[in-house]
């Protein structure tokens, strides 16, 4: 059932897409709410879709078993947020402990591939957070209180726009003007804003790594 996209497409897309997208320092969009805690990566992308050997095409199976009844694409679960036409946007908002469980990076790929640029929650599992950052998917961790405000704002108006400003590190509900700051470490922020990745950084210090190996051998 998983889509295999051939290596050529993979090459074309490559990192440059992600880098290009990251140049948007501000994300402004309506948001899709999933008001549940402990959403694990098995729900985000079930294991049976991990058989692909490329990074693409996972969006199609994002939240597969919550989206469709009995794995049947003709039977969408109507009130699940991704199927509910009243919701749209590039921001996914979810309850506490988002992305727990399996380390599969496919979860971040699926969310990104589906079209989200940011995930907002009051708590992220560590590995998911790293995976998201490595794919230029911004994890925005806010207080429980502010998370509830966002859910409320979306309940009142499903088109309520949220602004996430990475440069200035705040998230704002445009309708009410309420905002809250969020943390991100400086290094990661620089990476996201400039489209750098950790591998480039590490490859650049290879002589240091070799020196370390010699010193500790």
């Amino acid at each position: 059932m998983s889509v295999i996209i051939n290596a050529e497409d993979e090459k074309k897309k490559s990192l440059t897409t992600a880098k290009f997208q990251s140049e948007r320092k501000v994300i402004q969009s309506a948001a899709v709410p999933i008001e549940l805690e402990n959403i694990d990566t098995d729900q985000i992308i079930p294991a049976r879709f991990l058989k692909a050997t490329t990074r693409d095409g996972f969006g199609k199976n994002l939240f597969r078993d919550w989206r469709f009844e009995n794995d049947d694409e003709n039977k969408p679960v109507k009130d699940f947020a991704l199927n509910n036409k009243i919701y749209s946007g590039k921001i996914l908002v979810a309850g506490k402990n988002f992305g727990c469980g399996s380390s599969r990076e496919h979860a971040a790929w699926a969310i990104k591939d589906y079209g989200f640029d940011a995930v907002v929650s009051s708590f992220f599992a560590d590995i998911f957070k790293n995976n998201a950052l490595n794919n230029f998917l911004l994890p925005v961790q806010i207080s429980d209180e502010f998370l509830q405000k966002i859910f409320k704002a979306i309940k009142e108006d499903t088109n309520a726009e949220i602004e996430i400003n990475l440069e200035a590190q705040y998230i704002k509900i445009l309708a009410t003007g309420e905002q809250e700051g969020f943390e991100i470490n400086k290094y990661k922020k620089t990476c996201l804003l400039n489209g750098y990745d950790d591998i480039d950084y590490l490859l650049n210090i290879k002589d240091k790594i070799e020196a370390f190996e010699k010193a500790t051998a």
Partner: peptide, 22 residues
Amino acid sequence: FGIGTSEVEMVLATQCLLQSKP
């Protein structure tokens, strides 16, 4: 500890990872 695939690539490429101390 467990890592994602981008990090697998990092370790394959450099035997190192960027990590914040927990």
